[in-house]
Design a protein around this nucleic acid. Structure first.
Lengths: 202, 202
DNA sequence: CCGCGCCGCTGACAAATGTCATGGGTGGCC
DNA sequence: GGCCACCCATGACATTTGTCAGCGGCGCGG
């Protein structure tokens, strides 16, 4: 009994390469391959894969959101997130989105193959080291607005720009930034953004 | 006559996948595969590949530096840079490092295969769109010190921290930052870092 | 040798940023 | 209803930042 796979990765070359790699295994069959997050669900509905391999960074719809939609609308299709970054926040969000597995692209091929088979069998598969890091990073202490402000600040916007984009007064924005800096333990807006980003709080 | 390939990419999974992909072509033979930049030269000396496929982001030694060393020490081995980011500065630096080809991971597999064959034949292969972008971005207008300051600022360091790390006075750092902001057309230190980074000036 | 660009520094000033105290409004929860 | 957390705002304040002018030194090319 072969395992039917859906492959989603925005990098054409990587996707084709993974396809070639997975084809080496006798029990895998890649039934669909897409390059955009918003094509995942349609493809899954059409081809009914057993397991969907989703990259996180994708145009249209990110892999995490795609996983959530998939879990809701295509029962029987389990999700393995396959991503470059073993960032703590990604893992947490992947779990919340209903993913059954999480593999980083640093891992060797047989880890991926193994993860796919185990997920298919109903298990949940996560790199233990990454799981620890995720627990260490903990839940986000940021309020929704603090998060918004940091997200907007990410591109290098000034306080004034953030304020106008979020329709807030400058003083309010400063307050949120200040709170975020305190909560992240940063000494800068810039550092606060970086830290929060790394922890997956954005 | 098969083309002997060396593969360098820090992501194990991607490397193995590319290996599987390239093995599908009759005239390719992957003779070496490494995951660190500082292993490239040794591997090349030992296995004498015709073409080395180098990722840019790698631990130990980045792909650009590896390409430069390779060009100097292993004549007969041509280099194709294979990278995620089609950033203008990367291409320029790749060319300066003596690379013969430049392929982004967005490209389809046959573009890569084609590039390898043409590079092997002595041609230089570059994505035309990216070449235009590179010319548009132009040479870096930053002086060495301005660059140093921006690089240090990238992590979110304050002026004071930059000053102490570079053994400069704070006023001097402020001047460099100011100059860099002017030259990038940014309105922030943060934005200046982002812009300079995108253009490959760091 | 002289000009020029880069390096490093200083000092002064304006603008942006971060901190703090305070207050009002809302909605959930006991 | 009272408590609490969050949202939004204001004003005052210290600190950090960016900008500008100016100084001396060094090395390179005309």
């Amino acid at each position: 009994m072969t395992i039917r796979l859906l492959l989603a990765d925005d990098q054409e070359l990587v996707r084709q390469a993974l396809c070639a790699l997975l084809a080496l295994e006798d029990d895998f069959e890649v039934v669909a391959s897409v390059g955009r997050g918003d094509e995942v669900v349609d493809a899954a509905r059409e081809h009914r894969p057993d397991v969907a391999l989703l990259d996180i960074e994708m145009p249209g719809l990110d892999g995490l959101s795609a996983a959530a939609v998939l879990a809701a609308q295509v029962p029987g299709c389990r999700v393995v997130m396959l991503t470059t970054f073993g960032r703590a926040g990604y893992l947490r969000r992947a779990m919340e989105a209903g993913a059954a597995g999480f593999v980083v692209k640093d891992a060797p091929a047989d880890v991926l193959a193994d993860a796919i088979r185990r997920v298919r069998a109903g298990e949940r598969v996560v790199d233990p080291a990454l799981a620890v890091a995720t627990l260490a990073a903990g839940e986000s202490p940021l309020t929704a607005r603090e998060r918004d402000v940091l997200v907007t600040a990410r591109t290098g916007a000034t306080i004034a720009e953030i304020a106008s984009r979020l329709y807030l007064s400058e003083g309010t924005v400063r307050n949120y930034v200040s709170a975020a800096i305190a909560k992240t333990g940063a000494r800068n807006r810039v550092e606060a953004v970086r830290i929060a980003d790394e922890r997956g709080w954005l």
